[in-house]
Simulated scan of single mutants.
Amino acid sequence: HCPIYIHHDDLFLLQDVKANLSVYEKPFVVKAPVTISEKKMQINNFEIVWLHMPGHCPGSSMIYLPKENIIFSGDVLFKGSIGRFDFPNSSKHDTNISLGKIKEFDFDAIVYPGHGASTTLQDELLNNPYL
Rank of each mutant, 00 (worst) to 15 (best):
F28L: 08
G116S: 10
N96I: 09
P113C: 07
F28T: 08
F28W: 13
H1C: 07
V49Y: 05
D106N: 13
V111K: 05
V29M: 02
I43E: 08
S118Y: 07
Q42P: 04
A19I: 00
K101Y: 13
H7G: 04
E47V: 10
Q122R: 14
T35F: 06
K101R: 13
G100E: 10
S22N: 02
D75L: 12
V49W: 12
N128D: 11
Y24T: 10
S73M: 07
E124R: 05
D10W: 08
N89T: 11
V29N: 00
S37P: 00
Y64V: 09
F72H: 04
S60R: 02
K79G: 05
L131Q: 01
L99G: 03
H93T: 15
I110R: 10
Y130A: 15
H52K: 15
I48Y: 07
I63R: 09
N127L: 08
G100H: 01
D10S: 14
A109N: 04
G83W: 03
K31I: 07
I36T: 06
I71R: 00
P66Q: 04
V30D: 06
E104V: 11
E25D: 12
L131G: 01
G100K: 06
V17K: 03
K79W: 04
V49F: 10
T35M: 09
P27W: 01
K103L: 08
S98F: 05
E68N: 06
Q122G: 05
I70L: 15
K92A: 11
H115N: 13
L126K: 10
D9E: 12
L65R: 03
K67Q: 15
L121H: 08
K101E: 11
L131M: 09
K101T: 05
N44E: 09
E104N: 14
T120H: 06
I43A: 05
L51W: 07
D9L: 11
L126P: 01
M41L: 13
N89Q: 15
T35D: 00
T120L: 07
F78G: 03
H1F: 02
A117K: 14
G80P: 01
I102R: 00
E104G: 01
F72C: 04
D106I: 04
G55V: 05
L13K: 10
